[in-house]
């Protein structure tokens, strides 16, 4: 198992500014065009730009889409990604409906569904994550350190509360 297999996506909505660079990167990598319709990750925008959420396949450990797909087209890759086998998919969208976030996206070329493949073999980091390197809203981190990293961020915020300025004697 390479270290990439142990990685998971972590989203911090607070950091997303809706720049959609991730969508561009994704569509460009897989279709050679920059178009949100061709992207497997999409940004949901709420309010007057006060909340942007990157929505994409969570690659569940026990994916519901695999269980409900009538064509058995949803498959788990060795790197943990859950993707659609286009030879089997008939575009019935069952995977979209069962998905807690409605992640699968229709492939505008074939009409079949598609989800994040983590830029499978050829990229060091998924391109959307690379595109988000400035905002860091989207990170692709080792699963083993994710909790610790979040804990550290939170602890940094709490530190001030716990550590009152020193009272001079």
């Amino acid at each position: 198992m390479s270290s990439k297999d142990q990685k998971i996506f972590v989203v911090d909505e607070r950091k997303c500014d809706g720049c959609r660079e991730c969508e561009k990167a994704c569509s460009h990598k897989h279709f050679g065009v920059c178009s949100p319709r061709h992207s497997r990750i999409r940004i949901e925008a709420f309010g007057d730009g006060d909340l942007f959420v990157p929505v994409f396949c969570q690659a569940c450990g026990d994916p519901l889409c695999i269980k409900v797909c009538p064509m058995n087209a949803r498959i788990e890759l060795a790197n943990g990604a859950v993707v659609t086998d286009e030879d089997r998919c008939i575009g019935c969208r069952t995977c979209v409906y069962i998905c807690p976030v409605g992640a699968p996206v229709e492939n505008p070329v074939s009409g079949k569904l598609m989800t994040c493949d983590r830029c499978a073999e050829d990229e060091e980091l998924p391109l959307c994550v690379q595109a988000c390197s400035k905002q860091q809203a989207l990170r692709f981190v080792d699963a083993r350190v994710v909790a610790r990293t979040t804990a550290r961020e939170c602890a940094a915020r709490l530190k001030a509360a716990y550590k009152p300025p020193k009272v001079p004697e």
Partner: peptide
């Protein structure tokens, strides 16, 4: 649990961990 990891992203305290082996 279906292992969707939404809670991992949601927890502000980093109390949710992900065990890739399991």
């Amino acid at each position: 649990c279906i292992g969707c990891k939404m809670c991992v992203s949601a927890c502000p305290f980093g109390a949710m961990g992900w065990n890739p082996k399991q």
